[in-house]
């Protein structure tokens, strides 16, 4: 069973395209499926969002998308944070969006343990070391 009925998905789609329209060479929210398959992905990851999202969308269901966004962003209707999380969260899960951004996602790259060693050899730390200790020693000790 799908998490939200088609009517509320349509409301979400209208709002989503106001928040993330097609512009600057990037697709709109609904073009990549924010109100469709990506919404399914979002609620699979966060089933706790379904009820508050349905409440918000129901509250603005009779508004046109521009008015709905205005009322949500002004706080006249509570729950913009939920809508923003679902819309932006879904949009940024899109492979098409990632490709357009040139963002590879969290591809693993094991650290190079010698990176800083080379930095030290390059002299990047030399001025820090040359200035000498900057801490205040424990009174009565000769720790320097």
């Amino acid at each position: 069973m799908r998490a939200l009925d088609p009517r509320l998905r349509a409301v979400l789609g209208g709002i989503a395209d106001q928040l993330i329209p097609a512009a600057h060479g990037m697709p709109s929210a609904t073009e990549v499926g924010v109100a469709d398959t990506l919404l399914d992905d979002v609620v699979r990851a966060r089933p706790d969002l379904v009820a508050p999202l349905a409440d918000v969308l129901t509250a603005v269901a009779d508004d046109d998308p521009v008015s709905a966004v205005a009322r949500l962003r002004s706080g006249a209707v509570a729950g913009f944070d939920v809508v923003a999380l679902v819309v932006a969260g879904g949009y940024l899960m899109s492979p098409r969006v990632k490709a357009a951004l040139g963002y590879p996602g969290q591809e693993p790259k094991i650290v190079d343990p010698d990176d800083v060693v080379r930095t030290v050899h390059d002299g990047l730390l030399d001025p820090v070391v040359a200035r000498g200790p900057i801490y205040r020693p424990t009174p009565g000790t000769e720790v320097r």
Binding site: Q18, P21, A23, H24, V69, R73, G89, L101, Y103
Partner: peptide, 29 residues
């Protein structure tokens, strides 16, 4: 990662929405 830098909060109380969403995302990520 990108979501935390786009939602309202530490990167701006209002967030960037509309066509500006894309400009902000590209400039930050």
């Amino acid at each position: 990662a990108p979501l935390s830098i786009m939602l309202p909060g530490l990167w701006g109380a209002e967030g960037h929405w509309g066509p500006d969403f894309h400009l902000a995302l590209r400039s930050r990520l």
